[in-house]
Amino acid sequence: MNDRHVHKKRFGQHFLHDANVLARIVQAVAPKPGERVVEIGPGDGALTLPLLRALGRLTVIELDRDLIPRLHAAAQGVGELEIVNADVLSVDLRRLADGAPLRVVGNLPYNISSPILFHCIEQLDAIHDMHFMLQKEVVERMAAAPGSKVYGRLSVMLQLACRVEPLIEVPPAAFRPPPKVDSAVVRLLPRAPHERHDANPAMVERVVKAAFGQRRKTLSNALYGLLTPEQISRAGVDPRARAEQLAPAAFVELARIAGLPDNPTP
Rank of each mutant, 00 (worst) to 15 (best):
Arg103Met: 08
Ala100Ile: 07
Arg103Lys: 14
Asn107Ala: 07
Gln76Lys: 14
Leu96Met: 09
Val84Cys: 00
Leu81Lys: 13
Arg94Phe: 02
Leu67Val: 01
Ala74Val: 13
Ala100Phe: 09
Ala73Lys: 10
Pro69His: 03
Ala73Val: 08
Ser90Ile: 14
Tyr110Ala: 02
Asn85Phe: 03
Ala86Asp: 05
Asn85Gly: 02
Leu89Ala: 15
Asp87Met: 00
Asp92Ala: 08
Asp87Val: 01
Tyr110Gln: 06
Leu96Trp: 05
Ile68Val: 15
Leu89Tyr: 11
His72Gly: 10
Ile83Gly: 06
Leu102Pro: 07
Ile68Phe: 02
Ala74Tyr: 11
Leu89Trp: 11
Asn111His: 14
Arg103Phe: 01
Val105Ala: 13
His72Arg: 15
Arg70Leu: 11
Asp66Met: 05
Gly79Phe: 03
Leu93Met: 12
Gln76Val: 15
Val88Leu: 06
Leu81Trp: 10
Arg95Tyr: 07
Asp92Ser: 09
Ala74Asp: 12
Gly99Ala: 01
Val104Ala: 02
Ile83Met: 05
Glu80Arg: 10
Leu71Asn: 04
Val91His: 02
Arg103His: 10
Val104Met: 04
Gly106His: 06
Leu96Arg: 01
Arg70His: 09
Ile83Glu: 03
Asp92Ile: 03
Asn111Ile: 08
Tyr110Cys: 01
Ala73Asn: 12
Arg70Thr: 11
Asn85Gln: 12
Leu81Gln: 12
Leu102Ser: 09
Arg94Tyr: 07
Gln76Tyr: 12
Leu108Lys: 06
Asp92Pro: 08
Gly77Asn: 15
Ala74Trp: 09
Asp98Ala: 14
Val91Thr: 08
Ala86Gly: 04
Arg103Tyr: 05
Arg65Val: 07
Val84Thr: 01
Asn85Thr: 04
Tyr110Gly: 03
Asn111Ser: 13
Ala97Asp: 10
Asn85Cys: 05
Ala74Cys: 13
Asp92Arg: 04
Asp87Thr: 06
Ala100His: 13
Leu67His: 03
Asp98Leu: 07
Leu102Trp: 07
Pro109Asp: 11
Pro69Gly: 06
Ala74Ser: 15
Ile83Gln: 04
Arg65Ala: 12
Glu80Met: 11
Arg70Asn: 12
Gly77Ser: 13
Ala74Arg: 14
Ala100Thr: 10
Ala97Tyr: 09
Gly77Thr: 13
Gly79Ala: 08
Glu82Lys: 15
Gly77His: 12
Ala100Arg: 10
Leu108Cys: 07
Ala86Pro: 01
Arg70Gln: 10
Asp87Ile: 00
Val78Lys: 11
Val91Gln: 00
Leu108Asp: 07
Asp66Cys: 02
Ala74Gln: 13
Arg95Asn: 11
Arg95Trp: 08
Leu96Asn: 03
Arg95Ser: 11
Val91Ser: 02
Ala86Asn: 07
Leu96Gln: 07
Leu102Ala: 10
Ile68Arg: 05
Glu82Gln: 15
Asn107Leu: 05
Asn111Met: 10
Leu93Glu: 02
Gly106Ala: 05
Arg94Met: 09
Arg65Gly: 08
Asn107Gln: 05
His72Ser: 11
Asp64Val: 03
Ala86Lys: 02
Leu102His: 08
Arg95Pro: 06
Ala75Phe: 04
Ala75Asn: 06
Ile68Pro: 00
